[in-house]
Simulated scan of single mutants.
Amino acid sequence: MSSNAELKSEIMAMPSWLRRPIAKASELSTVQQIIKQLQIHTICEEGRCPNRGECYAQKTATFLLMGPICTRSCAFCQVDKGHAPMAIDEDEPQKVAEAVKLLGLRYVVLTSVARDDLPDQGAGHFVKTITRIRELNPGVQIEVLTPDLYGDISRIKMIVKTKPACFNHNIETVRRLTNPVRRGAKYDRSLFVLQTVKNIDSTIPTKSGLMLGHGETQDEVIQTMEDLRRVGCDRITLGQYMRPSLEHLPVQKYWTPAEFDEFGAIARKIGFSHVRSAPLVRSSYHAGE
């Protein structure tokens, strides 16, 4: 069987609850045209998020800063990797701010590829972009979804001092599976990032997410949620991992909607204030709420 046929067969075998209607062209085209015109990126497009039509229609989008090429090689992620990243576009903060204005966005999520090639891992670029968005769009709320910044307190502090509406850093998977799933990342480093945000400014809500389906057990997921709460993490998202290509890790389990509901109930019970737990949930899903 050819690789394309094998992947198509795998997609066809996915459970019915993972089949989402194709978004209306009208919900996608305006955003796509502006992104192309300004030569910027969104994780909605680069990551082929299944919810992008819904989010665009609700005036929410997640911008991907510092180019579409990541310096790490996580085994689950769709984002391009494995070759030299793009030079930083110094005009990107202005372009993103203009896109926010043109689209009339009320809530913006800023994320980025990992840029381990940069002295500050891109923290300063987050700050510049946040500043310019606010200058051009007074009143807009900005959530950040950052890489781990190597756990450097000074870099984390740079972003925290901009007072984002929420500081998100995804732990992605359970401790046992971190090495094979999140190459270059560390479980405890991710916890440290979230704890450091709270240590610097306890008023900023923190958030993290897990992508289930890599072979984790229910007990491991619960333990991870407890670990996140222990460092003061306020919000959590849980969604189903879906293999982007045959070069990525295979799905070990499709968790059912009922199981996601159970995880959501447990998350609320152990103290998360905002919980999104369903197969198609992604990091920024309904972030504006």
Rank of each mutant, 00 (worst) to 15 (best):
T196D: 04
G151F: 14
P180A: 08
I159F: 11
L194F: 04
R183A: 00
V140Y: 09
I142S: 03
N137I: 13
I200A: 02
I200G: 02
Q195R: 11
G213N: 08
P180Y: 03
V140K: 10
P164W: 09
N170Q: 07
P180Q: 05
R183L: 07
K157P: 03
T206N: 01
A185Y: 04
P180E: 05
L177Q: 05
L145K: 00
H169E: 05
L212C: 14
I130E: 05
F192D: 00
I133P: 04
V181Q: 00
D201P: 10
E135H: 03
A123F: 07
I156F: 14
D188H: 14
E135A: 09
P164G: 10
S154M: 11
G209E: 13
R132W: 08
D201L: 11
A123L: 08
H169T: 02
I153M: 12
L212Q: 11
I156M: 14
G122E: 14
K128N: 11
T196Y: 03
D188Q: 13
V197F: 04
D188K: 13
K161H: 08
L149G: 08
G209S: 14
L136K: 13
G139P: 06
H169K: 03
N170C: 07
P164L: 07
M211C: 12
V174T: 15
K161F: 07
T173A: 09
P164R: 08
G139S: 09
I171F: 07
V193C: 01
Y150E: 14
R132F: 03
G122D: 14
L212T: 10
S154D: 15
K186N: 11
K128Q: 15
K198C: 03
P164C: 09
I171V: 12
V144D: 09
A185E: 05
D188N: 14
K157F: 01
S190K: 00
T131P: 01
R175C: 12
E143L: 12
H169F: 04
I142C: 06
V174F: 05
S202L: 09
T146E: 13
K186Y: 03
S190D: 08
D152Q: 15
M211G: 12
T129P: 07
I142G: 05
T146V: 15
M158N: 11
M211N: 13
R183Y: 00
L177A: 07
R189E: 12
L194S: 02
N179K: 13
T162L: 04
I159P: 09
T162H: 00
T162F: 01
Q195A: 09
S202C: 09
E172V: 03
S202I: 12
L145E: 01
A165T: 12
H214S: 06
Q141E: 12
A165E: 14
V193W: 03
R189S: 06
V197N: 06
T162P: 02
N170K: 08
R134P: 06
H214L: 14
L194T: 02
F192I: 00
Q141Y: 06
M158K: 15
V127Y: 07
I204V: 13
K207E: 09
R189G: 07
L145H: 00
H125P: 06
A185G: 02
L194G: 04
L210F: 10
A185D: 01
H214Q: 13
